[in-house]
């Protein structure tokens, strides 16, 4: 495999990467522009559009809501997803195969259909509060990532270690927390990060579940873009990219980035 790919192929790959990176560079440039309209390259550097994000109360509110929903939704998904992933691996023979498929359903059915269905049966059907509906929706869309990533970690865990601990007198619950969980720590961190980012960026489910007074950041961005064409949205985008870089740095520190490609 030492022979290099054809130069034409290398050229095409380079263009594909340019295509991937350039739009993001343009967004960063537009965010720094001193003009009241979107432009690139930036004319005059300024951070005023970043300040503007926090002066618009709708952005302030939705950033908080988005972070709350992403954090709570991810934690609940971990709370119900970790036991499920554990059981799917530990009791592989006893449990039916379709159970594994069940937990992947939230990413198999179109998200937008799921959002609409929740609106119809939960928000309208039972009159559930908006925040609760949003939280339930987000918990479910991140559940597949949690179950799959942690299952993948557990697949390489040797359950005889756990059995050894139990046969030596350790209580099953205590064994889970002292033996099993520490061994799949990397998987739990990866699941948390993937779930958090997925929830933070979600549009299709939130679209139906946000309501008067409560909205998430991506929905607020959509609404803003349709009315104004100023660099505020570019600044919010850069803020979100920063968050992504920070998260990637954490992943790199704990797991190494090639982990994400698997």
């Amino acid at each position: 495999m030492s022979d290099r790919p054809h130069p034409v192929l290398i050229g095409i790959a380079a263009l594909v990467y340019l295509f991937l990176m350039l739009p993001l560079v343009i967004v960063v440039g537009a965010a720094l522009s001193d003009t009241t309209y979107l432009t690139f390259p930036p004319q005059g550097l300024s951070l005023r559009w970043f300040q503007n994000i926090f002066e618009i109360s709708a952005f302030r509110r939705t950033i908080v809501t988005s972070l709350q929903i992403a954090l709570l939704g991810t934690l609940i998904a971990l709370l119900i997803g970790i036991p499920a992933a554990y059981a799917l691996n530990r009791f592989r023979i006893e449990l039916p195969k379709w159970l594994g498929t069940l937990f992947v359903l939230p990413i198999l059915v179109p998200e937008i259909v799921f959002g609409f269905a929740l609106l119809k049966s939960l928000t309208v059907g039972t009159g559930a509060p908006i925040f609760l509906s949003l939280l339930i929706g987000h918990t479910l869309i991140v559940l597949p990532y949690v179950v799959r990533v942690i299952s993948a970690s557990l697949a390489s865990f040797d359950f005889s270690i756990e059995e050894a601990a139990i046969s030596l007198g350790s209580a099953p619950v205590k064994t889970f927390f002292t033996i099993v969980l520490p061994n799949v720590r990397a998987g739990v961190i990866a699941a948390f990060i993937l779930a958090f980012i997925t929830s933070l960026n979600d549009v299709s489910v939130s679209l139906f579940l946000t309501g008067p007074g409560i909205s998430t950041l991506p929905i607020q961005i959509l609404a803003h873009v349709e009315q104004f064409f100023d660099p505020t949205v570019a600044s919010v985008s850069v803020l979100l990219m920063f968050l992504t870089v920070a998260v990637m740095a954490i992943v790199e520190r704990t797991l190494g980035l090639t982990f994400l490609a698997k």
Binding site: F40, A234, M241, V245, M248
Partner: peptide
């Protein structure tokens, strides 16, 4: 691989917005 993961972790709204600036 990192350069491919990064856009993937950037939200769909941000990525569509980038093209709004380019194609407008």
């Amino acid at each position: 691989i990192v350069a491919a993961v990064f856009p993937l972790l950037t939200g769909v709204v941000v990525r569509a917005f980038a093209w709004l600036i380019i194609l407008g």
